[in-house]
Amino acid sequence: MDFESLALPNVDTSNWPVWLAKSWPFIEKWGLVLLACLLIWFLSGLVKRIVTAFGKRVSAKDKSFEGSSWDIASSVARVFALIFMTPLPLGLAGYDWEAIIDRRGPGAFAAIAILVIAVLFANWVARSMRKMGNQAHMRHGADDTLFAFSASLLKYLIFAIAIVLALTQLGFPTASLAALLGGAALAIGLALQDTLKAVAAGVMLAIFRPFRIGDFVTLAGMDGEITDITPFRTTFKQIDNKIVSVTNDKVWGDPLVNHTRQTRRRFDLYFDISYDDNMDHALKTLLDTANEHPRILAKDETWVGVHTLADWSVRLRLRAYVATPEFVQVRADLTKAVKEAFDREGITIPFPHQVNMAYRPHAPAGSEQGPLTSITETDD
């Protein structure tokens, strides 16, 4: 089909200005080209939406879609849709679009097929490796963190190879493509130094494994349970169920606290008593209350002592060991139990006192001079 022979409305330009009548064929031709470009832009966007909708349907509901392989595939699909539909504006502009289709059409279909197969295969490989890691973790207690990292790395690698193969199907020479990719890699490497640092840090995290998936850690000043690690970022879930993502270079470079690496954990609790109370009696009450809790481990290692003599109280310190998963609950239980025990034994938990002194610098003649003192008690 010759786009130039399309039956267009015959516009009478005899009454038009000469310059406009002479320019009308040019305006008509390139106006159609512009409309064709807008049309293929809309259709390529529709292709992206279809791929995105399909990817969200097949992806796990608890996984973030942004940055996933399906998210990347939707953008790449739009690019290839634009390439596939370029014969339309080219034909309207006067080029031999049939020859272009004969020459590039099979390659375009092959490129799209390669990308679709690569996305499906990469996701299948990633899911299989993660499933294998979960099974090894449940059956043999193996660390599944390396499986998760390798799955993400392999998925991105498969997708990168697929893009190169798709470009070769579109007619890009292999040698020129290799040189182009080399130059692009150098430019991208200079522009994305932080991203490359994150990838390098991700490799180090996968090798040395300072934490595992499921560990409760402190990263970037925040606490949470590790849920995933990829070549670019580490994801953890906070106690209030918020998901936080931190780039791997931050994880590797900043101090990291792993709260669950050890099977047991020690907590330190502080309690204030009045200076008028018997310290030995308070320490014995504190020790007995702690050891009476059934979840306290190694009761012979439970320790109590005077921590400091504060301005308005004597501060006692309790150290005890508990199973790591039960740390928060046992700490809360003991805090409540100690308060109740102190109440039963008549041990006072004091509060700060503030004394304000007021003076009369000039008293009237014949009146008594002296300070006016007021005492105000306030809770801390």
Rank of each mutant, 00 (worst) to 15 (best):
F3H: 03
S5T: 12
L8V: 11
P9I: 11
D12Y: 12
N15G: 15
W16E: 01
W16S: 05
S23W: 09
K29V: 03
G31N: 04
L32R: 14
L35R: 02
C37T: 08
L38D: 00
G45A: 06
I50E: 06
G55L: 05
V58H: 04
I72T: 13
V76Q: 09
F80E: 02
A81F: 03
G91W: 09
L92N: 05
Y95P: 00
I101F: 10
A110E: 05
I112S: 08
V119P: 00
V119A: 13
D144S: 15
F149I: 11
F149S: 06
F149G: 05
A151I: 11
S152K: 03
F159A: 11
A160I: 13
I163A: 13
A166F: 06
L170A: 01
L180E: 00
G189Q: 04
G202I: 08
I207H: 04
I207M: 12
F208K: 11
R212H: 12
I213H: 01
G214N: 10
L219D: 00
A220S: 14
D223T: 10
I226M: 12
T235I: 11
F236I: 09
N241C: 01
K242D: 02
S245C: 02
V246R: 12
V246A: 02
T247P: 08
D249K: 14
K250D: 05
V251R: 09
W252R: 12
T260A: 09
R265K: 08
R266M: 05
F267G: 01
Y270P: 00
F271K: 02
S274H: 11
D277T: 09
N278Q: 10
M279R: 14
A282V: 07
E301G: 01
W303R: 05
H307P: 01
W312D: 11
A323I: 03
V330I: 13
T335W: 04
D343G: 07
I347M: 04
I347F: 06
S367T: 15
S367H: 10
P371E: 06
T373H: 06
S374I: 07
E377N: 06
